[in-house]
Amino acid sequence: MTEVATQQGRSTTEQVLENGQQKFVHLRIQRQDGPDAQAYMQEFAVPYTPGMNVISCLMEIRTNPVDKNGRPVTPVVWEMNCLEEVCGICTMVINGKPRQACTSLVDKLEQPIDIKPMRTFPVIRDLMVDRGRMFDALKRVKAWIPIDGTYNLGPGPRMPEKDRQWAYELSRCFTCGACVEACPNVNDRTSFIGPFALSQARLFNEHPTGMMNRADRLDALMGEGGIHECGNAQNCVEVCPKGIPLTTSIAAMNRQVTYHAMGAWLKK
């Protein structure tokens, strides 16, 4: 058992009346029946309960799948897992901004709440998208520390506490895709891997063991869709739910690739 904030543990049957009337939450949701289907909008009104977030609204819809006018519809498809903004799967565009549905509290949103899938990623169905390209990007920049082997490598080198603190901030990226969605340079005319991947390369380049693959990561950042595709619009840092200093990471990696490129050229 762990302790949760009580808001989440509230009773589901509690109802809120306004002038003796049930209060409703109004939502406009973009639906899409399949990867190649046409998108269309649908409106919903779900009974309001205090502390509600967008996910609890969607859950309300699937328990009683009818639209605003009471006509039966198929339940909205979306993904969720942790419900506490650590897994990143529930990212969608809510009132125009990419964010996590689980931490989008209804009380803080203007209604009707406008909900769309992220446009940067292929839509699978309704609000469910395929973020596969993000994981491919992480593979490309080797966003890990290779320590697997057949024998014990012993304790790794230590990291100064001061560096650990800022590196920890970068490590909080949960591949949610908000920065990729907001970036004007991620579109079908470019192959930009996205801000988060540059920041992850910085994180693992800083790690004392990860440093051993530093050159590989920098080479990847100089490759197709790499760091040069960034045009400094800096939307990423504004939308990142974890407040990751993405623009600092990008500039720091720009510095690293500059030295790396010049060093490599001078050594030839």
Binding site: D136, R140, D219, M222, G223, G226
Partner: peptide, 10 residues
């Protein structure tokens, strides 16, 4: 995957 050492765009 594209060759990592193609740096021409960069």
């Amino acid at each position: 995957m594209v060759q990592a050492d193609s740096h021409s765009q960069f």
